[in-house]
Structure formats: structure tokens, C-alpha cells
Amino acid sequence: MPLATLAFTIATIWIFLHGSATPGHFFVGLIMALLIIRFLKKSYYQDRAFFRIGSYFRYLRSFTWELLIANVQVLKIVLSPKLSIRPGIIPYKTVCKTPLGVTMLANSITLTPGTLSIDVSDDDETIFVHTLDIDHPDEVAEGIRKGLEEPIVGAVE
């Protein structure tokens, strides 16, 4: 979002936090927003593409689905009477190029089925993924590519 839109969004969130929509509160929110932006501007990744909002929702939907599966899976593993896991660390080559894309992918990997990102290589190309139950490394990579990477590439790359 452009910075001005960001400021107004933060001010609106402030109004919701307060629960009373008076011009005064909106003004206070706006001042807060300007302060926040003033201090965090350097690390803010600016994306002017509003039309991507559809891809963001596609990412959210696919992420929520993966999150549900992940929790059922952890539930099954943890509560099964006999632990049957074959953990391991596998490399995952990513096609994400921007820092934001790699960050989102690594974070999403951690929150979804059986996988946990441990480190990213120096050239930002390989993510090392710890997996709880490996049948076949390629299957795990395929799952990440289909379920997470493609929506992320659509949303932020």
C-alpha cells in the first residue's frame, strides 16, 4: 500500500480499537500512524499493486486450509499411542526472489503440515525444512510448492 493509505488504515484500526468513531479519535489515530510510519519507514516494503488483493485472498484461503490439515496431523502424531515419526531436514529450492516472498514462504512453511523452516541459505535460494514424517522428500517439496509457494508468488512476487 502507499504510505498515505497505510496511515488511514492504521487510523481506522485505531477507531475500531476505541469503539467510538469521533473525528477526535480519528485524528489521534492519524498522529499515531504518522509516528509509526516515521520510525518504521525504512523496513516497509512498498507495493502499489492494489489489484493483487484477489491473490492475497487466494493465499489466505490456501494457507488456512493448510493450517487446518497441519493441526489435525500434529494431533494424530501426538495422540497416537506409539510415536511413529521419521524426522529429517530436507532442502527446498524456492523460486521466490524478494525478501518479502522468502520471509512469507518460510513463515508459512513453519505453520503448515509437518514442516518447520530451520534456516535460509546465504543466497536466499534454499530453505532448509525440518519435516516430522518423511515418506519421500520430493513429495514434501511438491506439497509446499502447490499449497504455499504458488499462492505466495501470485500475491507478492
Binding site: 500434529v74 502424531i77 510415536l83 513453519t110 503448515t112 518447520l116 516430522l132
Partner: peptide
Amino acid sequence: SIGLIRLPDVYCRMHAATKA
């Protein structure tokens, strides 16, 4: 919490600790 106790090593435990 059960996962934290039952799973064998740090990495597996982080799975339970983050997702659930």
C-alpha cells in the same frame, strides 16, 4: 503441551509448539 513432552528432540517439539 503433550507434544512438547512426547516428541523426541528440539526440532520435533517446535512443530507441536508452533502449529498447535
